[in-house]
């Protein structure tokens, strides 16, 4: 084990060719088509909340239920959306990403990459 990671990858695997293969491009597309829109969505939603809490105090102070106001409700919804996105990502990865990634990994490993 040297300090500069030499990754124990066999030299005869052509990563450039592999990265351009249809199979890998498909995996890359599937991955990005989920994580990018989701990242944009939660950032926009989070900053919408931040701006509301920062500049729209009257709106956030509207009582919804007893003493529970809009601010508390929207704040708790941030928790809910975080948990929901987490669960959605796990289920997406298990169903769509892992099988594709495992297939490519196993093929490359059988070609001599370790």
């Amino acid at each position: 084990m040297s300090a500069n990671p030499e990754h124990g990858v066999a030299a005869d695997v052509d990563f450039v060719k592999e990265s351009q293969s249809e199979e890998f491009q498909e995996l890359r597309k599937t991955h990005r088509s989920f994580v990018f829109p989701m990242a944009v969505f939660f950032l926009v939603w989070y900053f919408a909340y931040v701006l509301l809490a920062d500049y729209f105090h009257d709106f956030m102070s509207i009582k919804v239920l007893g003493n529970i106001n809009m601010g508390i409700v929207l704040g708790l919804l941030q928790f809910v959306s975080t948990f929901a996105i987490t669960a959605a990502y796990v289920s997406f990865s298990n169903k769509k990403l892992d099988p594709k990634a495992t297939k490519i990994r196993e093929r490359l490993e059988s070609e001599g990459v370790n």
Binding site: H7, V9, S19, F24, L27, H31, T102, R105, L108, V113
Partner: peptide, 13 residues
């Protein structure tokens, strides 16, 4: 660059 991309998504190596 290609190696990093393939490895990052597939976990190979």
């Amino acid at each position: 660059q290609a190696e990093m991309e393939v490895r990052s998504l597939t976990g190979v190596g």
